[in-house]
Design a binder for these strands. Structure first.
Lengths: 325, 325
DNA sequence: CTGAAAGCGCTTACAG
DNA sequence: CTGAAAGCGCTTACAG
């Protein structure tokens, strides 16, 4: 493993000149530059990023803290991050260890910035405090454990409202929700019903966690009768697909008997047994705004404390118009 | 951001003593150790991993090069890696950038070891050469671009044979394969038919890439007639599920009219419209063996050039016994 | 344009 | 048990 000192010897210049040549500094003649690069190439030189980072105080790395890979939304989003950060000469390194420990790792690695994403709704203020103590650019994507933290916020409430409103337009009155673990969605749902003058009953909310299995189980077991909802919002992509499968197996036709809108927009939503109408943020938009904000944070430029992204409705075939209820 | 030098001042000892105290060296009295740790704690000291790595020449990091996140097999496997490496005090950092560039990143980061996984069948020998030049522990998981490279090999051929043999036991004679991009599987399939004395025809192989969409399209368009296969092996989990959906939509009953075995064992295979019988390696086994080999490589202990993992059959409901053909 | 020097934050023989 | 010194591989003012 050759170092700049050795390259210096081999090419007959000082090692500080080698450093400059390697960094394409304008303080070096083309000739020496060429000579140095040639030697470097020949001996398979690979710069030591650790040493460089230590010397410069910056790593050109962004730490990405991943919460849950089973959800394809996160997989897609991560891909987008890689893509866009590369365009700005940042490498992103990702870890799946729990946030509390991942924070330490990346702090110790002195990454230039830290991105969190996934659902931090459950995290305590304690954690937000820790994050602030870090004294490094931190950007939260998804939901922030604490307002006035730099973040890319998804306006989930707007998304849920949009779904309720679309159902209403299509003539539905009894609208339910599958999934009960995300406070903001549940609340938005209730508010939207209220504002729209639509009826609500506790059993309209099907308690369920955010996985395919739970969605499936929940909808296998729920009683369906003439007064139960004619339309449901599924709180995420996995659960909604599980729910759809369950309905199918029970012989309940979607959308003829029950309409469905799934939260989260993803290609696979279109591939469900019934192509699912969805409401969800554009993942590309999230990635682009994240990159922008992160770079601004690193350069200490002013950043809006939070950037909001509004989910959009994507009409496919899982919602039916009802004329009479 | 406090450093050991400042801690030294604050606690009235030399900084080399601080270093030792922080590393819990036995060359330091309990008393000074306590004092130092207290100060460190108080000022929120976080060790600089870059500096430490530079000084020691090891990073305690494993670089993981990810190829394709859409495939849940990879997501699951990555989780397992994180888990098992943590047990051995290694952090794994992952990147999704293309292998050629990822290699440079991790080389520059001086990670202790590099793991590749996913399908390298397509890679050139050129790449294998580059890998060898790296002069660092490299472990290939999945398929190696080059024999006698340290690797965890999946015995895909054995898996395919197992599937063919199971179909045969269940009375099938005309057995097809969906997916044509993985040389080893296609070849094993043909060999297995030959060895078993089963008929083969070119159209038994449905050309198809390894995604849900392609699997779906392929099976939507393929002609089905009295002489076409009664059973198919789907080359991976995604494609098999796409294929199943297509058959369903065409009104072809699985397994009554067509039996299906999907390659790749994953929880979601059981959640398909028809719980899928699969053949595939245990992801946990892969992870455990990978960690073992990697650690042996790092410690320069002898490592078998390749460790083989044999896929196993998981019987569910997508294969039907036929008595007469 | 080139080079000598100091420094980034740690570790680790080596003396005491 | 403690500390002074050299070193890990780089960068970056500063002189020349």
């Amino acid at each position: 493993m050759i170092t700049i000192k050795e390259i210096a010897k081999l090419s007959g210049v000082s090692f500080s000149t080698v450093s400059k040549a390697l960094n394409n500094s304008s303080l070096v003649t083309a000739a020496t530059k060429r000579k140095v690069l040639e030697v470097a190439e020949q001996y398979g030189y690979s710069k030591n990023l650790l040493a460089q980072s230590l010397a410069t105080g910056k790593s050109n790395m962004i730490g990405l803290i991943w919460q849950d890979v089973v959800n394809p939304v996160y997989a897609q989003l991560a891909m987008q991050f890689y893509h866009y950060f590369r365009n700005h000469d940042y490498e992103v390194v990702m870890t799946m260890t729990p946030p509390e420990q991942a924070v330490n790792l990346f702090k110790q690695l002195r990454v230039d910035g830290l991105i969190f994403w996934g659902d931090l709704e459950g995290k305590t203020n304690q954690f937000a405090k820790r994050l602030r103590e870090l004294k490094m650019p931190v950007l939260i994507v998804g939901s922030s454990p604490d307002q006035n933290f730099p973040s890319i916020q998804i306006d989930r409430k707007a998304g849920v409202r949009e779904a309720v409103s679309y159902f209403q337009q299509q003539g539905h009155r009894r609208i339910g929700m599958i999934g009960s673990t995300q406070e903001s969605k549940v609340q938005a749902y209730k508010e939207a019903l209220l504002d729209a003058g639509l009826p609500f009953a506790p059993e309209y909310i099907v308690p369920c966690e955010l996985s395919w299995e739970r969605g499936y189980e929940a909808m296998m077991n729920i009683p369906i009768h003439p007064n139960s909802p004619t339309a449901y919002i599924g709180c995420n992509n996995l659960l909604t697909r599980g729910a759809l499968r369950a309905l199918k197996e029970r012989g309940v036709h979607v959308p003829e008997e029950i309409s469905l809108i799934g939260y989260d927009e993803l290609p696979e939503m279109a591939y469900a047994e019934v192509p699912l109408t969805t409401v969800g943020p554009s993942l590309e938009e999230i990635a682009v705004k994240t990159v922008e904000s992160m770079i601004a944070l690193i350069q200490m430029r002013d950043v809006e404390a939070s950037t909001w992204i509004t989910p959009v409705l994507n009409v496919r075939k899982s919602v039916m118009r009802v004329t009479k209820d």
